[in-house]
Every structure is written in structure tokens, then in C-alpha cells.
């Protein structure tokens, strides 16, 4: 004789299997997100005993204050540089490696590993290395420039330059990742399409690229764009390691601002507002990505 019937037993099994993860998701993701949304309308400070509702004040500061606004504009500029260039280079490298693969597969694999290395390497440690490379007096870069009689600038402390320097590091780190995605896209293009294009008279390299490769890479490219964009909007490690948003907020970005305002200055309310702005940006990209995935992945 069983104490509980099967319906009950099945329900218990489901609870036991899916319950812990569901509770963890609620506690660690969904409840925090709602708390952040609420906090963004308060002046709450970490450690304070109370807080006041301040409506949209935090958001207004973020939009109106020129210094605060830099976090948003810098992030957009940074992304606007990193997204197209890392995709372009990623595509070029992928095309090159894909063609090399035909006659020298080993060499192609070695080169692929080289380009991918920055993706696997710990970015903070590599940022410290970049700091040495870009050191105004001792760095390799300025040494090389000096050899060509150019006086190298202070890459990381020049207000006009710092964001672009960070963008270059960002590109360096992302190219390999995009290359890998493009290589997968290229491998999926059926060979017979090139034969067909050749019969139709498209026999030069660039003709074949525009008639077959580029259109066939369409979905991959869209996917790469959104993945790169989400990555670019989250830039944090290099900023925290190399500039701390300086000099004078010249390299301040959203995630670093979240960290600084929230966890250095303890302005939890204000930091939450920055978080929400950041969230909206990322949400737009991720939703776009999901739309793309839906046309390729089938959910049951």
C-alpha cells in the first residue's frame, strides 16, 4: 500500500527536479531586477537606514549632468568603433583562413589559434600588459614610434585619445571571437553554390564574394553584430584596470559608472538608475538576438 498516489508522487518529482533552480532563478535574477528598478527611483545609499522616493531625479541627472552623461556617450562611441571594426577584421581574417584551409589546413589552424588567443586569455592580466606596451616612456609602442621619429602620445592619459585606445584593445580582444563565428558560417556554405556562381560567370574572387559568400553569411553577420554589440556595451575590465574612467571621465562607461557610483560612492539609488539604462541597451540587443535565433533554432 502506498501512502501517496501517483499524481502526488509525480508532482513531487517535478518539484524536486525543477524547484531548486526555479527558486534560485527568482532569488538571484528576477527579484533583484525588480529591486534595482525600484531603487532607481530612490536616493538610497548603501548602509543608510532609510531612503526617499525621488521620482525620475536619478535619470534626470544622468541625462542632464554633462559629466554623468559621458558614461552613456562614451559607451556608445566605444561600441560604434568596436562593433564595425572588430566585425570587419573578424570577417577578413575568417575569409583569409578559410581560403588557406584548402591548401594548408595545419597552418590555418595555427593562425586561427593565434587570433583566438586574446579571447581565452584573462583580460585583466592582458590589460596590465597593454599598460606596459602603451607606457608613455617605456612602452614598446612609443619606442617603436620613436624609432620612426614620432613622439608617441600618452595613450591612456590623454583625454582625447583614451577612449580610442580602449577601443583598440576591445577590437584586439573581440576579433578572434568574431572570426570563429564567421568561420563557422563560411563552413556552412555549400560548395556547389560556388560552382553555380562560376558557371554563371562570377569567377573572380570578389565577384564570388558578393554573389555567394556575403549573402550566405547574412544570418551569421547579424548574429555577430548583436553578440559584439552586447559585448561592447559591457566593457568594464579594461576601463577598471587601465583608466578607472579617467582622465576626467574621458573613458567613463556605463558598467564602470555602475561600479563607481554604487560601490565606491555607495549611491545605490543613482547607480540603480545607471543600471537600468545599461539594462535597456543590452535588452534591445539581446531581444534582437533572440529574434534571429528563433529563425534558426527551434524550440519545442
Amino acid at each position: 500500500m502506498r501512502l501517496i498516489d501517483r499524481t502526488r508522487a509525480e508532482a513531487l518529482a517535478n518539484l524536486w527536479l525543477a524547484g531548486p533552480a526555479t527558486v534560485a532563478m527568482l532569488v538571484l535574477i528576477f527579484i533583484p531586477v525588480s529591486i534595482v528598478a525600484l531603487l532607481s527611483f530612490t536616493d538610497y545609499q548603501f548602509g543608510a537606514r532609510s531612503f526617499n522616493w525621488v521620482g525620475f531625479d536619478n535619470y534626470l541627472i544622468l541625462i542632464k549632468d554633462p559629466q554623468a552623461r559621458r558614461a552613456i556617450t562614451n559607451t556608445i562611441v566605444y561600441a560604434a568603433i568596436v562593433i564595425p571594426l572588430s566585425i570587419l577584421f573578424g570577417l577578413l581574417v575568417a575569409l583569409g583562413l578559410h581560403s588557406v584551409m584548402r591548401y594548408a589546413p595545419r597552418l590555418s589552424a595555427v593562425l586561427r589559434a593565434a587570433y583566438f588567443l586574446p579571447v581565452a586569455a584573462t583580460l585583466v592580466a592582458m590589460a596590465v600588459v597593454w599598460q606596459m606596451l602603451l607606457h608613455p616612456n617605456l612602452g614598446l609602442v612609443n619606442h617603436l614610434l620613436a624609432a620612426a621619429d614620432i613622439r608617441g602620445p600618452a595613450w591612456l592619459s590623454d583625454r582625447g585619445l583614451v577612449l580610442y585606445t580602449l577601443a583598440v584593445i576591445g577590437i584586439w580582444q573581440t576579433v578572434g571571437y568574431n572570426m570563429v563565428l564567421f568561420l563557422a558560417g563560411l563552413a556552412a556554405i555549400p560548395e556547389h553554390l560556388y560552382d553555380a556562381a562560376e558557371i554563371d560567370g562570377a569567377n573572380r574572387g570578389w565577384e564570388r564574394f558578393w554573389t555567394v559568400t556575403w549573402p550566405m553569411l547574412g544570418p551569421t553577420t547579424l548574429f555577430v553584430v548583436v553578440v559584439t554589440a552586447t559585448g561592447a556595451f559591457r566593457v568594464f575590465e579594461t576601463v577598471a584596470t587601465l583608466t578607472r574612467g579617467g582622465p576626467a571621465f574621458a573613458s567613463d562607461v556605463l558598467v564602470y559608472a555602475i561600479y563607481r557610483e554604487g560601490f565606491v560612492y555607495f549611491k545605490a539609488g543613482y547607480s540603480s538608475a545607471i543600471t537600468m539604462v545599461f539594462f535597456v541597451f543590452v535588452l534591445l540587443f539581446t531581444l534582437a538576438k533572440f529574434r534571429l535565433m528563433e529563425s534558426r533554432v527551434h524550440y519545442r
Partner: peptide, 28 residues
């Protein structure tokens, strides 16, 4: 089971949330 699509919906929605967003409340 009942609630299966709800939980899967939560999973998909959770994919949209970068960790940075939850940092402040989790810290608290």
C-alpha cells in the same frame, strides 16, 4: 507538468539579464 512553460519562460527571460544588473540587490 503544469508550470513547465512558465519556468521555461523564466529561463528565456533570465537570458536577457546580464549579471551586472542584479549586482546591487545581490550585494545588499
Amino acid at each position: 507538468f503544469r508550470g513547465r512553460s512558465l519556468i521555461f519562460g523564466l529561463v528565456l527571460a533570465g537570458l536577457l539579464v546580464p549579471f551586472h544588473v542584479t549586482a546591487i540587490p545581490i550585494f545588499l
